[in-house]
């Protein structure tokens, strides 16, 4: 199936000379949840804003369901709903009015039943006649999502959707995202909360300094880059790393009571059996053992730290 969004060689240089995007190539598959990770200023928002038409690209092309975002912008944009990072809402309008306004803006005939459904899904129904300025920050975030969903988009961009949002809203929000995904909507989100990407995304892209460093299936990414660690809790204190097999992959804790073996999960043989045998031959006994797998966060930090 052809990708729903195809970004090719996209670059953006701001008037200040800042290269926000440097030749981005990315295809988004239909119906997937794609998480874009990256530190502040990496280009996440610029990338989203360019696809949505808020920022003019300096070079490259973007097509949305085959429609070029510049030459065929109407058809491209009709398909997209955008939830911006900032809480940019009207102040004096009611929730109902602003949501209906968004629907019209995106060229859809009024459909009160749909607006009602969206507001109910986001627990905004009892606030529908409230002026937006009377709502809390979390409620305003819901309003922004309602606006983005008002015109039944096939693609939803969520720019840092859970920044500064309480636990309940985050749960609600992910419930909405799951429902949308089930109905075939493609979702692209940026986040700082890596556990979110880990929990929700099918694929993950890491962007740093305007370049996509890696785009990978989440599971592949974790297993490919993920290292596993085996920690042995020792019965007797050790003074130095024992000179056994794999000694270069062993580290000793400061108190000399924990020995950690780092190994690659991708390797055919992890070497655990051999290591344990070697330790037992060296008469090193242990009370307990545990393994940990590096989280996406560790991977992410590793990736953006790497000098390129």
């Amino acid at each position: 199936m052809s990708p729903i969004i195809s970004i090719s060689n996209l670059s953006k240089t701001y008037a200040t000379g800042f290269h926000a995007l440097k030749g981005i190539n990315l295809d988004i598959a239909r119906g997937e949840i794609f998480a874009l990770l990256g530190p502040n200023g990496a280009g996440k928002t610029t990338l989203i804003s360019t696809v949505c038409g808020i920022v003019n690209p300096s070079g490259g092309t973007v097509t949305v369901d085959g429609h070029d975002i510049l030459t065929d912008f109407r058809k491209a944009r009709e398909l997209i709903g955008l939830v911006p990072q900032e809480l940019t809402t009207d102040a004096f309008e009611t929730v109902w009015a602003t949501t209906s306004f968004s629907r019209g803006l995106f060229g859809k005939a009024a459909n009160p039943a749909h607006i009602e459904r969206v507001l109910k899904d986001l627990s905004l129904w009892d606030k529908k006649d409230n002026k937006i300025m009377t709502l809390s920050g979390g409620m305003k975030r819901r309003v922004l999502i309602a606006k983005a969903l008002s015109h039944e988009p096939r693609i939803l961009f969520l720019d840092e959707p859970t920044a500064g949002v309480d636990v309940q809203l985050r749960k609600d929000m992910w419930e909405v995202v799951r429902k949308l995904r089930a109905s075939g909507v493609t979702i692209i989100l940026t986040t700082h909360y890596i556990e979110e990407a880990e929990e929700m995304a099918d694929r993950i892209g890491v962007i740093n300094k305007g370049e996509l460093i890696v785009v990978e299936e989440k599971k592949t990414l974790i297993s490919k880059l993920g290292k596993k660690q085996l920690t042995l809790e020792l019965q007797k204190k050790l003074d130095a790393v024992p000179q056994v097999i794999f000694a270069d992959q062993l580290t000793l804790s400061a108190d000399g009571m924990n020995l950690t073996y780092t190994y690659d999960t991708e390797a055919e043989r992890t070497g655990i059996t051999r290591l344990l045998n070697a330790l037992s031959e060296a008469d090193i006994r242990f009370r307990d053992l545990s393994t940990t797998q590096s989280s996406l966060e560790d991977i992410f930090v590793d990736l953006v730290r790497q000098p390129r």
Binding site: I54, K75, I80, L82, T89
Partner: peptide
Amino acid sequence: FTGTIYELLSAPIS
């Protein structure tokens, strides 16, 4: 001023 212009710019309108 409020930033809601984002919606106008991202909408399928000329």
